[in-house]
Computed example of a mutant assay.
Amino acid sequence: MDAETWSTQSHHGTAQFEAWRHALSRTHLDWDLRPSRTSEFHADIRERVLDGIRVVECFCDPCEGSRRKPELRHSNEAYFGVLFELSGHEIIRQGDRQAELSAGDFVLWDSEREMDFKVTSRLHKLTLLIPKFRAKRLEWDVERFAGTVVKNSSAVSGISAEALRRLARDFTAIEEKDAEAVMQPILSLLMATLTTRQEPASASVAHRDHFSAFCRFIGNNLEDGRLDPRTVAEAHGVSLRYLHTVFAHNNDTCCNFMRRERLRRCHADLSRPHCRDTITEIAFRWGFNDAAHFSRAFKAEFGIAPKTLRRK
């Protein structure tokens, strides 16, 4: 596929930013965009697919945008994005992480998580959109690096930055037959850099963000008897292995957390003075499917049998 180009030069006045809104959503997924000023807006895009990865080079004036639930719902595919700053300045926020990016810095972001950006000066950037199925097929545990910023401050990150600069310069001239040979070493280099550069504190923040999201999802779906760890992982676009890693990081397991939360909901219902539901009805409502197993688990958790609690 040859490179496609787009520019605001063919538009005038306020139509320029509207055209940019549509162009960015086409090349970088759906975003809710806001201009930083009301005068003319200038932007240029070059885009190409290399070895199944969308490579997008972009110049743009200051603006800001966000991806929230409406934009997330409009996206049919899931990606990991690598955003590399060639020049200019940008502020990125995903989850509880916020980072300021300057020339030579890059960040990994997750298209299935809410995100904000603010371009504060004329920007030149390169974005790689890597399909999630591609990363998982290669057994890259990418989820734990989402939101990680790599600053251009060492020899390791400098090598990655130079590779991305060269890709931005040459990607339109790469022949199709050479695409895999070019992209695979770059992806491996980026993963190696993320692995070596991620600080323990950053890992803890990533785990905390995901752990909170997993727990909220479980709490909102406890009545579904089919809820299991795989369902939770798939709902968040992460691997089952990563889900178990996050719970282990919090000295817990997903299955134990689900069981405890279901038992707590049952305990709350059984403790209500005017609850007319039977013990079995309550147990089944909160995802248990065996009354005897529920009674044993309940007594092991709270030191009292369901019937005894109800009598009290």
Rank of each mutant, 00 (worst) to 15 (best):
M1F: 15
A3R: 00
H12S: 14
G13Y: 12
A15Y: 08
F17T: 01
E18R: 09
A19P: 04
R21I: 12
L24V: 06
L33V: 15
H42S: 09
D51M: 13
R54T: 08
R54W: 02
E57P: 00
F59K: 09
G65K: 14
E71Q: 09
L72F: 13
N76F: 14
A78P: 04
E85M: 07
E90G: 05
Q94G: 03
R97E: 09
A103Q: 04
A103T: 06
G104V: 01
D105E: 03
E112L: 12
E112N: 14
K118Q: 13
V119I: 05
K125G: 00
R134H: 02
F145V: 04
K151M: 09
K151L: 15
N152R: 10
A155K: 03
V156D: 00
A161D: 06
A161Y: 06
R166K: 14
K177D: 09
D178H: 08
A179S: 10
S188N: 05
L190T: 00
T195M: 13
Q198R: 10
S202I: 15
R208T: 05
R216N: 06
I218E: 02
G219K: 11
N221Y: 01
L222N: 03
T231Y: 02
G237D: 02
R241S: 11
L243P: 00
T245Y: 13
V246N: 04
A248S: 07
H249I: 05
D252M: 04
R260Y: 07
E261H: 11
E261Y: 12
R264Y: 11
R264Q: 07
R264L: 10
C266S: 04
L270N: 02
L270A: 06
S271Y: 14
R272Y: 07
C275S: 10
D277Y: 10
D277K: 14
A283C: 13
A283Y: 01
G287F: 03
A291L: 09
A300T: 11
A300E: 12
A300I: 11
E301I: 15
G303Q: 01
K307E: 05
R310D: 12
